[in-house]
Write a protein that binds this DNA or RNA. Structure first.
Length: 683
DNA sequence: GGTAACTGGGTTTTT
DNA sequence: CCCAGTTACC
């Protein structure tokens, strides 16, 4: 049914050794652009050719996009031969089980909710919801700012998730990463206990719980054997970005290492801030004595000129050294454009984007990669002014927009009436309902007891008179939605229930409601509202245009992305702005050694996204919004990562500010004021 | 007492 | 743009 030979023919020797490695544990150290994805796809294909059923191969990836990409490639090779097949598989046994750790964990937990004694209607809450829960509980635990400033809810949530993902005690996490919260360690412990109890009482599951529950089920003597037995082979991509819990899940899935393949590159570890630790990659050799290590160093992506800079920037790491060798010829030197200020930088980028476009590149062959989402603000204005279309990835997400959160909260209430955070948000949407009233109403519903919806007629007494009609209408609408069967009908009914309060709340309600109509459409195609909600929480649309439907093939636009979101991707032309200390590396990371090391890896990831042309920009005068007038700008240094050795691999260009076309006029405002004075008359 | 409206200061990266 | 803190209204 399937020819592995075709796939293997396209591989080099090391790749083929990795793809056809027999049974024991395998670690593939794959530098950037060395064909890691192709190798993993080939390995999955080879395993199938050896007789492993597709559904018994588990592929764990870092993003949903990476999983879909690889699954499609495996299938297209099997179903349509090399190069063919755009469709996704329809038959279950053709399908490899693939996704992020969180998505797979969710799938397993949802399927076995009863075995894990979870209510089947449990809600999955995102980090913002976690902060909302903590914000409510905070008051009971001596964490409201009175004499000394207590950590805010979002900070508490960060500490909590850090403890979980690194499996470290509060004392150690606070001491290492949140020293200003040291005085509150005791209160935080109480808060976290209450938070866990609250989640269990209201059928809430957060992102961390998904991993913890999967791990606990795997560690259970009875359930573990059954869950392990679901798979014969486990392939893990981007292993340098796993956290302690994920590493243990992998261990529990393949305790003896048979059928385990991990792929990673510790120079590309960029998720320490959320508990990932490339130490788990290095620890694999100790965990599996028979571990086979294969290095991929032949780079198929970038020109030598780009690779020379990449190698100069790449951090050194003990034991896992790796120097990339190019195969695509020399290429032009990367340009380092020293810009007078940010406006100059924006003009220089726009000019080079247009140059490349005129010499035959499509806009979508180019990307601008930034450290922080707001780094492209000035550029976006410049691009709009010049009529250059662009799409932005990363940064603020569609699901973080207020009205989207409102809709998701209402949908969660319908799916899981015990979801107090959802109730809270829906109630507060109404005029005249603040935190206190919302809490009273939620208390009156007694969500922890069975069937809170039936208690609504009594709870309505807790609504202040002037808001009663509006709130009643909304809740009645939601109760009606809960009674419907089809997902599509539910979604429509939920939106209908919200239209009134949304119009009252938002002056620009029209476009917001239009957004939600598309969201309701998207949710309607899912088998259940539950699945739709979790998919949205776990894998939110990355840009507002995502829900507008697939982009037309003739649409051409420049990509703007955070470096984090650009991981694993490549473009023929890459522009890297803001290469000054304070931005790259971020000033948030300057104080710690580890932080700085991660920033360097991030820069390495950015540089290695480029295939042919790489442009680096350093705006040397930055504006600041300060209260004082004197302090309008400061001077920046070219990023410390672009030291003399790295700059030697670049062509250096000076970009001066545009000369003003009109001569400077002194005291212009004084002239105007004097003219105005004549209007006020002689007093 | 509880809410809305205003103001001033701050902003990393994401499953 | 979003949050916290303050003030002014019901």
């Amino acid at each position: 049914m399937f020819e592995a030979a075709d796939v293997l023919d396209e591989l080099n020797d090391e790749q083929r050794r990795a793809a056809t490695h027999s049974d024991g544990p395998l670690l593939v150290l794959a530098g950037a652009g060395t064909g890691k994805t192709g190798t993993l796809v080939a390995r999955a294909a080879w395993l199938r050719a050896q007789g492993t059923e597709a559904s018994r191969i588990l592929l764990l990836t870092f993003t949903r996009r990476a999983a879909d990409d690889m699954l499609a490639r495996v299938v297209s090779r099997a179903a349509a031969g090399p190069g063919g097949g755009l469709g996704t598989p329809r038959t279950a046994d053709e399908r490899i089980c693939g996704g992020t750790f969180h998505a797979i964990a969710h799938r397993i937990i949802r399927a076995h909710a009863e075995s894990f004694s979870l209510p089947p209607e449990f809600s999955v809450i995102d980090p913002a919801d976690v902060a909302d829960v903590l914000d409510v509980l905070r008051a009971d635990h001596g964490l409201v700012g009175t004499e000394r400033r207590a950590p805010r809810a979002a900070v508490c949530a960060d500490i909590y998730t850090r403890c979980v993902n690194t499996q470290t005690t509060i004392e150690d996490v606070v001491a290492a990463s949140f020293p200003w919260c040291r005085d509150f360690t005791g209160q935080l412990a109480g808060l976290f206990r209450a938070y866990v109890a609250h989640k269990r009482g209201h059928a809430l599951v957060d992102f961390d719980d998904l991993l913890l529950l999967w791990r606990a089920a795997l560690a259970d003597p009875a359930a573990g054997a059954a869950l392990r037995g679901l798979f014969d082979a486990v392939l893990v991509d981007e292993y340098q970005d796993v956290n302690a819990v994920q590493a243990e899940i992998v261990r529990l899935l393949r305790p003896d290492g048979r059928g385990l393949t991990c792929v990673g590159d510790d120079a590309q570890a960029i998720y320490a801030f959320r508990g990932a630790d490339p130490g788990h990659l290095r620890a694999l050799a100790g965990a599996y004595p028979g571990l086979n290590v294969i290095r991929l160093v032949r780079n198929y992506r970038s020109r030598d000129s780009v690779l020379r800079l990449a190698n100069a920037v790449r951090p050194q790491s003990e034991g896992l050294e790796l120097e990339l060798t190019g195969l695509r010829g020399a290429g032009a030197f990367p340009q380092l454009v020293r810009c007078h200020d940010e406006a100059t930088q924006a003009r220089e980028i726009a000019a080079r984007v247009l140059d490349a476009h005129e010499s035959g590149r499509q806009l979508r062959d180019q990307a601008v990669l930034v450290r922080a989402a707001h780094h492209s603000d000035v550029l976006e204005v410049e691009l709009s002014a010049r009529g250059i279309p662009f799409v932005k990835f990363g940064g603020l997400r569609f699901t973080e927009a207020a009205h989207v959160k409102d809709f998701l909260a209402a949908a969660r209430v319908v799916a899981n009436p015990a979801d107090d955070i959802g109730w809270f948000r829906v109630l507060r949407l109404h005029e005249g309902i603040g935190p206190t009233h919302a809490r009273r109403i939620v208390d009156a519903l007694r969500l922890a007891d069975p069937s809170p919806l039936e208690r609504w007629p009594a709870a309505v007494e807790a609504v202040p008179a002037r808001a009663r009609d509006a709130v009643s209408a909304t809740v009645t609408g939601l109760i009606g939605a809960a009674a419907l069967d089809r997902t599509a009908d539910k979604a429509v009914a939920i939106l209908a229930a919200l239209v009134g309060p949304l119009r009252a709340r938002y002056p620009d309600a029209g476009p917001r409601i239009a957004d939600l109509e598309r969201l309701a459409d998207a949710a309607a195609s899912r088998p259940s509202l539950h699945e739709a909600l979790v998919e949205l929480a776990l894998d939110p649309p990355v840009s507002g245009s995502d829900l507008a439907g697939p982009p037309r093939l003739d649409d051409d636009y420049l990509v703007i992305s955070t470096i984090h979101s650009a991981k694993g991707l490549e473009w023929p032309v890459v522009h890297l702005p803001h290469l000054v200390d304070g931005a790259v590396p971020s000033d948030m990371a300057l104080s710690s050694r580890d932080g700085l090391a991660e920033e360097r890896r991030l820069f390495y990831v950015a540089v290695t996204r480029a295939r042919d042309e790489l442009y680096l920009y350093a705006p040397l005068r930055l504006h600041h919004r300060r209260n004082g007038r004197d302090d309008r700008h400061s001077y920046a240094q070219v990023s410390r990562f672009l030291d003399a050795r790295a700059q030697a691999k670049c062509e250096i260009v000076e970009a001066a500010p545009r000369q003003p076309a009109v001569p400077r006029v002194a005291q212009l405002a004084a002239t105007v004021d004097a003219a105005l004075e004549s209007l006020w008359g002689a007093g």
